[in-house]
């Protein structure tokens, strides 16, 4: 294959986003198949120490420019466009996150090439890239070839594991220079969520408790788990009815509609009224003592067991892993 495989690293507020490592893992595979080097592009300002974390790539192209400090997609796209013109990669993998997707689409527009979207898997095969893309809200999967050069490919979160993309290897950093014009769009500031009032519809991680949690005191187990995940606790109606949680935490037909990345259910049977409010969650894990509970027809992963035992065990493991 002519040209290297690139991944665009996502660095945000002084940290490398985890999806970057997923892309590195995927890119590694694809580069291996194509027999070309894998290069990671990191755009930033005074972010060299972040570049060091990208050892899984053969080379890290690091562009340091004051204009790249803030999340301005226009600048990032312009920088990438320059680098691409200079170095002619075969494919550029972009994270499909709210932060990076704009970089990818603006870049594709500037280069006048398509932006291959919703990609969950990618293969290189005889000079061609074949992607598996998730369409129609997950109802179909398409196998797609992209012959554009370079192919700009948006990769869904979760394509590979973060672990696979981490490496202790010292990154080989190549400094690259980009010149940037003043952007049209001006970044003003970050708006952090107000912590006082938990809006469960805005959370990526939710731990939902049902009557299986049994007493109000056990709610603490769920709170701990949610805290370890960085999410919030919500519940089924009976739990809200008991007054264990406020009405704003109720998920379902008569409550909130949520679509978090992860929805952990502790002792919820899976009544249609509840399912209505959470069925679009990206990953659903249900813990229930009853193997025949209808929730297991909805959840992606199920555990037949006591939520009061599983929840604390999980909290410990997560804490241990996160360090």
């Amino acid at each position: 294959m002519a040209g290297n495989i690139w991944i665009v690293a996502e660095a945000w507020r002084g940290q490398v986003s985890e999806i970057t490592f997923e892309l590195l893992a995927l890119g590694r595979e694809v580069a291996g198949q194509a027999g070309v080097p894998l290069e990671a592009v990191l755009l930033g300002s005074n972010a060299r120490e972040l570049a060091q974390k990208l050892g899984a790539a053969d080379t890290v192209l690091y562009a340091d420019n004051a204009a790249l400090a803030d999340p301005v997609p226009e600048n990032a796209a312009a920088a990438l466009a320059q680098l691409i013109k200079e170095r002619q990669p075969a494919a550029v993998l972009v994270p499909l996150t709210n932060l990076s997707v704009d970089v990818g689409v603006v870049l594709a527009a500037q280069l006048n090439v398509p932006f291959l979207n919703y990609c969950k898997n990618l293969k290189a095969d005889g000079g061609n890239l074949t992607a598996t893309c998730v369409l129609y809200g997950g109802k179909m999967e398409a196998t797609v070839t992209a012959s554009a050069k370079p192919a700009i490919i948006g990769i869904l979160p979760g394509a590979r594991s973060v672990e696979q993309g981490r490496s202790d290897k010292a990154a080989a950093i190549t400094d690259v220079a980009v010149t940037l014009a003043a952007p049209k769009v001006h970044f003003k500031k970050y708006l952090d969520p107000e912590t006082a009032d938990v809006d469960i519809t805005q959370k990526d991680f939710l731990v939902a408790v049902g009557r299986g949690i049994q007493t109000k005191d056990n709610l603490e187990l769920a709170e701990d788990l949610a805290a370890s995940l960085g999410g919030a606790v919500c519940g089924s109606r009976p739990v809200i009815d008991q007054g264990w949680l406020g009405l704003s935490r109720q998920v379902g037909k008569s409550g909130m509609l949520v679509k978090p990345k992860l929805y952990v259910m502790l002792g919820i049977s899976g009544a249609p009224e509840h399912v209505e409010g959470m069925k679009s969650s990206q990953c659903i894990i249900a813990v229930n003592t009853d193997a025949a509970a209808p929730i297991f027809n909805v959840a992606h992963y199920g555990v037949v067991g006591d939520a009061l035992e599983v929840a604390p065990a999980l909290t410990e493991k997560i804490k241990a892993r996160k360090g």
Partner: peptide, 25 residues
């Protein structure tokens, strides 16, 4: 659902694995 089996410890470990695999940790 894909069922995860074993003791509470075991399943907690398995859940952790798959969360990591999905980029959720």
């Amino acid at each position: 659902a894909e069922m995860l089996e074993g003791s509470a410890e075991d399943v907690a470990g398995k859940i952790c694995e798959l969360l990591a695999k999905r980029g959720l940790l």
